[in-house]
């Protein structure tokens, strides 16, 4: 799906998002979320992707609230997580009046969880800063096809780092569950035509595995995906390669050549 937020070719960034639910699930059961804001702004753009954990309830709602809060806010570091209280209250307000059977009520009491990565980009100096908890990833890819190079993978850098039990951001505050020690932050600068890819965990693990095998898929996800059908084919290929059956999300942000201070 193309981002409707950048209406003309003059926008500093081109941003597109693609998503696909777990095989066998209904679209309504998709639990990743993404949000994009300001891709047509002359000054700043914000992107976030979150992945609601299968083993928690109302995690799609939690993931959506996290990404929306991030792109609508101004924080671009660990301070984003200082504001979790307001997001948690919003999550609780949206579900507290439901009449739930005992098991659903107990599951809600334990909270929803999500992995998160968000980045803010400065359209003037081309700098970007990202913050993450868990295993949603950002990849900074540079160069022109067919010579695309991975400059930076964040927060995970190798496929074997992905597991089935990452530390995630919870919707219920607990004193022994402080997310701040788990927050990772990084930054970089986008050259002309550089791309930032944001991916939820299963897709991110597959992309790193391909790169580790010397068969990088950066060109495929740069040029080879223009439509939802293209993305679904990619997902099918990843699953054939043994990637775990999971929701998959890809957000692609490309800095247009010649945009920003001094161009390139």
């Amino acid at each position: 799906m193309s981002d409707p937020l950048h209406p003309n070719g003059q926008a500093p960034f081109s941003v597109e998002a693609f998503s696909c639910q777990k095989a066998g699930n209904a679209r309504t059961e998709y639990e990743d979320a993404w949000a994009i804001r300001g891709s047509d702004s002359p000054t700043r753009c914000r992107v976030a992707v979150a992945d609601g954990a299968t083993e928690s309830s109302f995690s799609a709602l939690w993931a959506a609230l996290l990404v929306e809060s991030f792109v609508r806010g101004r924080s671009h570091g660990p301070d984003f997580f200082d504001g979790l209280g307001a997001i948690r209250r919003l999550w609780w307000r949206k579900i507290r009046n439901r009449s739930l059977p005992w098991y659903a009520a107990e599951k809600v009491r334990r909270g929803a969880y999500a992995a998160f990565v968000g980045a803010s980009l400065n359209a003037v100096n081309r700098g970007w800063r990202a913050v993450a908890i868990g295993d949603c990833c950002l990849f900074h890819v540079t160069g022109l096809p067919p010579d695309l190079q991975l400059l930076h993978a964040f927060p995970l850098t190798r496929s074997e780092e992905f597991g089935s039990s990452p530390f995630l951001v919870g919707s219920v505050k607990r004193s022994d569950d402080d997310p701040l020690p788990h927050v990772r932050v990084t930054e970089g600068v986008l050259a002309g035509n550089d791309t930032l890819f944001f991916a939820s965990d299963a897709l991110a693990a597959w992309l790193l595995r391909r790169a580790e095998k010397g068969e990088p898929a950066w060109e495929t996800i740069s040029l080879g995906i223009q439509t939802q059908e293209d993305f679904e084919q990619l997902v099918a290929q990843a699953r054939e390669d043994g990637t775990r059956n999971d929701d998959m999300t890809l957000v692609r942000l490309t800095r247009r050549a010649g945009q920003g201070r001094g161009g390139d």
Partner: peptide, 11 residues
């Protein structure tokens, strides 16, 4: 048994 992502901090 694995039925999907289980947060390490889930109690």
């Amino acid at each position: 048994l694995d039925i999907g992502t289980r947060p390490a901090n889930l109690r």
